[in-house]
Design a protein around this nucleic acid. Structure first.
Lengths: 274, 274
DNA sequence: ATAGGTATTGCATCTGACGCATCAATCTGC
DNA sequence: GCAGATTGATGCGTCAGATGCAATACCTAT
């Protein structure tokens, strides 16, 4: 209904989208001709537009095959804006989780060293406002958020990270050593979300899931925690809810769902003509 | 300098860059007016351009504050732009370097034009969180990463690349001209890794080594940087550690150890000087 | 040599980006 | 309440610049 501008800018952006299509990526980029044909535009214009994009770093050209593909500048934009977007997109998701799905306190946290820093909190309306958790740091080894943030790490990395950190503090079920911690990380990895049962504090249970950005790495964790008597019997459900919310947040950060750790050795651009 | 087209497209893209600037990110996005002032353009045009960007998902607007920020589409593009194998394989290697070998901040960077873009960062746990380096660009001629990324280039190529780039800025030992830069590149080539001593910033030293893909060309650089008083006396060791880590990363990307300079050049054939 | 593929460039045409002006909607301070 | 400041959106005349055709150049294959 509003003015549907054809707009040269929109046409230019369509070129970027075309270069990001699976087809173009699979071919290791597209040439001017192919791109023009795909977009139904003249080659001359595509050539000129792509030069501007290339000068600005939004696309780059393989000197060998003369094909264009998305450039690292786009990566730079996303990397600089990722934190901002995490916070902005996190708010609504936290609210929805607490109001519609779980009714318990939800946190969004990031890893800092071997500790967990909470950056966003959403409490149910009727909750007693105990502590302001935003900005608070807690240990990573006996919290669900920590477990989620460490979910990709291998044993040796865990060991190095927690060298000199005291274990067995907190709740009665806190992991006693790195071995126990790694076992529980493996459990979380299989489930896709982490569960803790009186590890951080007596009587407290929680579930958490990792949030990934466009690079595929874990950059944050979403978690819910509540007194055991209120949450325990629906903790698996809560874990699933947290996981799907975390996945939704990841998707908004450009995560395409492919495990980064599984990509090693994949995608060798084949020059073989179809 | 080739002809610098003003090009409405370039002006539009500058808006995206402005939205990804530190200032804009820190303020949680910028409004139309502020953006127009920053770019020296008319509010009307910024308003209209941003609407097109918003329709395409490249930016989105916070309904509360009416400010724009980078949108989901950029993150989706970035996921395609990132060389997933490089990022995926790089993460663990960075963590191991900082936690086990060096205890200082490690970066993984790629070359973009005559500048260096940092794509991954790993800091030691105790580090004060200063700047988010991911996505940041720095100059190539006075950084160890830049030196490593240029390690295969010949003099003529260096000269062309840095035509018009200001030398002698940064730290006290920054190279004053192309001649000095090329000399130091030769030194790095012999050692297999690059060292800089107060070239980028006073009091800062660093070491870097090139990462090669299966074709043998340099696609990235691994580097460590730290205050001189902490790293200087073990800088040769750090260089070796960085080099072997970079070689390991290269191996994971399919590099079999054959020198690229003997193969078909990945770059345009340089004109032979008489 | 020709033929078919690529990408870039010169140039005339006319779209659409531009800036000025105005207008609506919030925020200010009093 | 008012007036003034500041915000973003829009109508419109103008000309920069995006467009398309055609010409050019440069490959590889036959």
């Amino acid at each position: 209904m509003p003015d549907e501008h054809p707009s040269s800018l929109r046409r230019a952006l369509a070129l970027l989208d075309a270069l990001a299509s699976d087809d173009a990526v699979a071919h290791g980029g597209w040439g001017v001709n192919r791109l023009a044909a795909h977009e139904g535009r003249d080659q001359s214009q595509v050539s000129r537009t792509l030069r501007v994009f290339a000068d600005a770093g939004y696309v780059e050209r393989d000197p060998e095959s003369m094909t264009y593909r998305i450039g690292w500048h786009v990566f730079a934009l996303a990397a600089k804006a990722a934190d901002q977007r995490l916070i902005a997109a996190g708010g609504p998701i936290l609210r929805r989780l607490v109001e519609k799905d779980l009714g318990e306190r939800i946190h969004l946290s990031v890893l800092q060293g071997s500790e967990v820093l909470t950056v966003l909190t959403q409490s149910p309306p009727h909750a007693v406002q105990t502590v302001a958790w935003a900005g608070r740091m807690v240990s990573a080894h006996n919290t669900s958020s920590g477990r989620a943030l460490l979910i990709d790490l291998e044993r040796a990395e865990i060991e190095r990270m927690f060298a000199g950190v005291a274990f067995g503090v907190g709740g009665p079920n806190a992991p006693r050593d790195v071995e126990a911690l790694y076992e529980r990380i493996l459990t979380a990895r299989r489930a896709g979300y982490a569960i803790v049962d009186e590890e951080f504090e007596p009587g407290l249970v929680a579930a958490a899931a990792p949030v990934r950005d466009f690079r595929g790495g874990v950059i944050a964790a979403l978690n819910v925690s509540a007194p055991k008597f209120r949450l325990w019997n629906r903790l698996p459900f809560a874990g699933q809810a947290i996981k799907s919310a975390a996945d939704e947040l990841s998707a908004q950060l450009g995560w395409d769902g492919v495990r980064a750790s599984q990509l090693v050795g994949a995608h060798v651009p084949s020059e073989v003509p179809a």
